[in-house]
Design a binder for these strands. Structure first.
Lengths: 286, 286
DNA sequence: CGATCAGTTGAAGGGTCTCAACGCGAGTGG
DNA sequence: CCACTCGCGTTGAGACCCTTCAACTGATCG
């Protein structure tokens, strides 16, 4: 009930089309494309006789298992998913959280089996495109092919943003960056970027950020103590967005190398070492 | 001269075709596809009149600048590239190293400008495909479309392997995993997986692994002291591959959650906390 | 109502960051 | 030709942040 993703206003297909008016004038996500095309009836797109089904999942349900043969590609229609990788030791490494418009299982296209597992974090639904239909769809529908390319590209760009998350040294900075990412996704989905409900647990956030789950708790408390956030379990309210962004900008000690020579040369160095404010948040609150 | 990547035996196109016999029976990389098709003459594929050019870069030269308008897609033909992101503070975060067969600039497909910069680490060459030609190529050549999808998929899979690298707590484990990745790439390229030359510096490795460059040096020394490696600047020889792999398997403290219920249920937990050997390499050498 | 689990907080220990110094090789200009 | 500079790589020492173990609270559920 309090989760944003389950209350997303995209119930009927006709309403979905009208919502796309001012979002991205040049780009359409695959979910929008399929939602607009299919007045889906009985989990089947009969309108254009496309071999695209809709599958609904409950919270905790797995969409794909790690190592399972990859038979289909999925596009998130509603809800939130986590992409993760389970080690031989049993440690679960979360690689990404996916929301509407993103493709799932794209990393399995270049191999036979899923390198990563996918699970729903809440009640969700996806479009299912069989791999065996992929070539036919690409040939018959250039728009599908382009949308698929863009979805894959977005997935890669998101994955690289993740590296930026984990690149920060301080755990509080990682969490701040993570929350800003969430906030920006919320804004893109026409939802409040200041107040939202996290559909994932502390442990999953910790895994994504590459820290211990206790550290995530402490970082939440620290950000709240600094007056940047208001945290109540999984409900987060950003009180000082500018302050949060400023804090998220803290980086590792600057590498001595920064600029590349304008033409053809080797790297040039600059000598200012720079130091990061190791005091961090504790300076803001005292 | 001592660099492997510049001595890769893929000089003529006809030889390149024969080399693909036993590698991947079902999949062809874009670089192989283009190399096999084009008896490239004058940096242009005149054979099939494809609008695909070849561009050569020297070490340190930039293929794309961060924030520049994305006009083309690139496929690595030879050499090594680094994909990186420069922070506002000037800190340079390395996101990936790319070798033959990988696509560059794929993450820019879903937007207008390059989110990441790309630079050559050594003398390299790429195939250049203009974005304006992408639709035409996809329609006229289904093989191109499929190869592009696979290249993007591979890029995403690699990016997620990176998250596995940075997920390890101990810096020595991160380096061990990194070296194993390099080794596996070498094997895929038909080169010695035990002895190779790193085309990137310590600082770039450190940035990729998310640690300080001094720590990378120390980790190299530690792995060498343990008898797993022999290191001479950028030349690495793996002495004990099994030992290295075993060591790379060390993970963060196991999350209590490990297995998902086979059907539809929530997560099940197991109570064995498990502890990682905090002694690490120091136990192996003493 | 006992059990289990998510989340929080505390305390101790260790690993990594940072600053610093050194050797070394390459490129440059005297 | 060689001193000089610059950057890379290595190693040492101290401070600090995070990990780990532990205990507690509150919520959910059978």
């Amino acid at each position: 009930m309090n989760s944003f993703a389950t209350t997303k206003p995209q119930s009927s297909a006709t309403a979905g089309v009208n919502e796309c008016e001012c979002a991205k004038p040049f780009a359409t996500t695959m979910a929008d494309l399929l939602d607009a095309m299919g007045a889906e009836q009985g989990d089947r797109f009969a309108a254009l006789q496309l071999p695209i089904a809709v599958r609904r999942l409950r919270a905790g349900e797995n969409l794909a298992h790690q190592g399972a043969t990859a038979e289909a590609l999925y596009f998130v229609r509603a809800g939130t998913f986590k992409v993760f990788h389970t080690d031989v030791d049993g440690y679960e490494q979360v690689l990404a959280f996916a929301t509407r418009g993103e493709v799932l299982g794209f990393d399995a296209l270049c191999m036979e089996s899923h390198p990563t597992a996918i699970a729903a974090l809440e009640s969700s639904s996806v479009f299912v495109v069989l791999r065996s239909d992929l070539m036919m769809l690409s040939v018959k529908m250039p728009a599908f092919s382009m949308a698929l390319q863009r979805a894959g590209s977005l997935s890669l760009a998101r994955s690289r943003e993740l590296a930026d998350l984990m690149a920060a040294v301080a755990s509080e900075v990682r969490l701040a960056r993570f929350l800003i990412h969430i906030s920006q996704r919320m804004a893109a989905a026409r939802l409040s970027p200041r107040r939202f409900h996290l559909s994932m647990g502390r442990r999953e956030i910790a895994s994504l950020l590459g820290v211990a789950n206790e550290t995530v708790s402490r970082s939440f408390s620290a950000l709240a103590l600094a007056g940047l956030l208001h945290v109540a379990d999984r409900d987060v309210e950003i009180l000082d967005m500018e302050g949060l962004k400023a804090y998220a900008r803290s980086t590792r000690r600057r590498a001595d190398e920064s600029l590349v020579a304008p033409t053809g040369g080797m790297f040039t160095r600059r000598s200012t070492p720079g130091r990061r404010s190791t005091a961090g948040l504790r300076a803001m609150v005292s």
